[in-house]
Design a protein around this nucleic acid. Structure first.
Lengths: 199, 199
DNA sequence: CGGAGTGCCTTA
DNA sequence: TAAGGCACTCCG
């Protein structure tokens, strides 16, 4: 019995981060036996497309905040193969014009620390923060930012962006940074205590 | 204002008799601007599908034989376009096993003159006669029979049959043929007169 | 109209 | 001559 592999999909070190190479064997016709090569880019983290949301699960007697850690798998079977649906590469685009608000209007605004530099096809700080916050929330690996060459990424972000990192330039957090942040939290807590005593 | 033709349906000399070519412009999507080409075959005369029939029209006080010279136009709108109903190409098939009869059984049988040769996907003389009789009854153009190559037509009658001609090989009726037929009618009338006198 | 899969031209 | 890369067909 003659066994031959008809489809083979794999990472490939020569490719930019997040890309895969697929080889498909032609099975019929004059060109049967030839191989077609296809390149696919892995999906960027899209957990944020199903954001944490308040909804009522019937086993609880009150609303509960739930979130999905991974996309539910929906498959469309076309012929014998399994087809993936197209997905949004720059999911941050969806959140571009959304802001938190209450009855009095928009709640605060945010700004980036000076050592966090936006990098990618978006320019607003809000978009950068969304990207970073999602990475921190979802990623199981260290957050480093984009480590590729800025020029390379900016010329063709669809190809060269590292899909597993947020839209910021490479960044290093030192022990000092951590210590400074701990101090800041400590001071904020102290002020809160004083305010409660004074009230 | 930019006017472009979205649908264009026309005869095409490169096509077999009775076929039309339609070009449809894709208006949206990735392939917008491309053209899909469809081929349609004109309907073969199907007047015989509404055969002459005895029925009562209320303005007459007795049954009257009526017949339709052309199909009544029934349109089914599918989406925004006008869809035609599929029609039977070889309508003779419907009549294949029908014969005239009276209380005593089948009335007579028919046979073809030797110079009328059946040509098409049917073999019985009865079918050939139905086809020929309908053509003589309905057609406004001269009946010549199928003028294409017999082999071509037989290999793919659905494509190469001339829809405006009956299922007989090309035939020529000479002045002599007409004169012989006139003589035959004259003699039959003569015999009828004699029979009536004798009765 | 989209997409998988094949035809076939181009390049070296 | 092989591999790459479009164009195109065909069918859902």
């Amino acid at each position: 019995m003659n066994i031959s592999i008809e489809k083979k999909r794999a990472d490939c070190s020569a490719l930019p981060k997040g890309w895969q190479r697929e080889e498909v064997l032609r099975k019929t016709g004059l060109s049967a036996g030839k191989v077609d090569v296809y390149y696919y880019r892995g999906v960027r983290s899209d957990a944020s497309l199903v954001p944490p949301i308040r909804q009522t699960a019937s086993i609880f007697k009150q609303p509960v905040t739930v979130y999905k850690t991974q996309e539910s798998k929906v498959k469309t079977d076309l012929k014998q193969g399994t087809q993936e649906k197209p997905k949004q590469l720059f999911w941050e685009k969806r959140l571009e014009n959304l802001t938190a608000c209450d009855a009095n209007g928009v709640i605060g605004t945010t700004s980036l620390p000076k050592y966090i530099k936006p990098l990618g096809p978006f320019t607003s700080d809000a978009t950068t923060i969304q990207s970073l916050a999602t990475a921190l929330h979802v990623s199981s690996q260290p957050i480093t930012g984009q480590t590729g060459l800025k020029q390379t990424i900016m010329e063709n972000p669809g190809v060269f962006l590292n899909p597993e990192q947020p839209l910021i330039a490479s960044v290093t957090i030192t022990k000092d940074d951590v210590r400074r942040q701990e101090d800041r939290v400590k001071r904020a807590r102290q002020r809160l205590r004083e305010a409660l005593v004074a009230a």
